[in-house]
């Protein structure tokens, strides 16, 4: 079933990709996303549908759930336009935004130096450290210090901020970089990997939806990353509008309300 879903997704993505590539190229430089959004009455928002608590498409219902989905819809309401979600992932993020497949990527994108070179970030609205998920039966990983041991296999998703961080940090353990949906969980559960690294929202998802997952928290702060929304660099008016929105939701509590709704208030950033 998972494989069928994957193939459907792939077909859909490719179709959209081919459709919008031409249009984006023509309007990218001259016209602000803002005007276009207002003109088309459509706000295109990139999301990662596997991102639990942020922009998660529940496979059982097909509904999008998460803080950034709520905030994107709030933004659409503020602007008086319809929101159109566009599936993306961390692996495709830069490409999707740069190719103007969406007006903004709103899926708690870790603000990293590498990404900032290609993308423009709003002020952060969340921030998260790195967490590890292992199986309950794994006797070899008891705490954070057990991770970077010889023979330990650490899985990360390709394109996520964890990939460069762990590549940089791990000295003894083997890093496995995975690029298929849910691959990290499958690797760990089947025993091919001992742990996979993720952030706060995703770890929450694992603990809540599986009975085998065990959270391994870093001792002290390991590597905190701020999350924000990403857009094409240069479009100042669009950026200003987004920043203005970010300020409003932080001020008027909509951010906190949404965070609480998705149990993310511990990592909400309200300046």
């Amino acid at each position: 079933m998972a494989s069928r879903f994957v193939s459907f997704f792939a077909v859909l993505t490719m179709g959209l990709l081919s459709l919008w590539t031409a249009g984006a190229a023509t309007a990218a430089d001259a016209v602000s996303h803002l005007d276009r959004i207002r003109a088309n009455k459509i706000l295109r928002v990139c999301i990662w549908p596997d991102y639990y608590g942020i922009s998660y498409r529940n496979p059982k219902t097909g509904q999008l759930v998460g803080i950034d989905v709520d905030l994107a819809r709030a933004l659409g309401r503020d602007m008086g336009v319809t929101v159109q979600f566009v599936d993306s992932s961390f692996a495709k993020l830069i490409d999707d935004v740069t190719a103007d497949r969406c007006d903004v990527a709103m899926f708690a994108i870790g603000i990293t130096a590498a990404r900032a070179e290609k993308l423009r970030f709003t002020r952060p609205h969340l921030k998260s450290d790195i967490y590890a998920i292992t199986t309950r039966g794994n006797s070899r990983i008891k705490d954070w210090n057990d991770i970077d041991k010889k023979g330990t296999v650490v899985a990360v998703a390709k394109g996520t901020l964890h990939e460069p961080v762990m590549r940089d940090k791990l000295k003894n353990a083997t890093l496995a970089v995975l690029d298929t949906p849910f691959a990290r969980e499958q690797e760990v559960e089947s025993g091919r990997a001992d742990v996979f690294m993720t952030d706060y929202p995703y770890s929450r998802r694992m603990l809540e939806t599986t009975d085998w997952a065990r959270l391994v928290e870093p001792i002290g702060t390991y590597h905190v990353t701020s999350y924000g929304w990403a857009l094409q660099p240069g479009d100042d008016r669009w950026y200003a509008r987004l920043e203005s929105f970010m300020s409003e939701i932080k001020r008027d509590g909509r951010l906190m309300t949404a965070a609480k709704r998705h149990k993310l208030d511990p990592i909400a950033v309200i300046d």
Binding site: M1, S3, A183, Q186, E189, S190, G191, R192
Partner: peptide, 12 residues
């Protein structure tokens, strides 16, 4: 790989 993606009881 695809065949065992969703079979956690199978390591390889």
């Amino acid at each position: 790989r695809r065949s065992i993606a969703n079979l956690p009881q199978v390591r390889s």
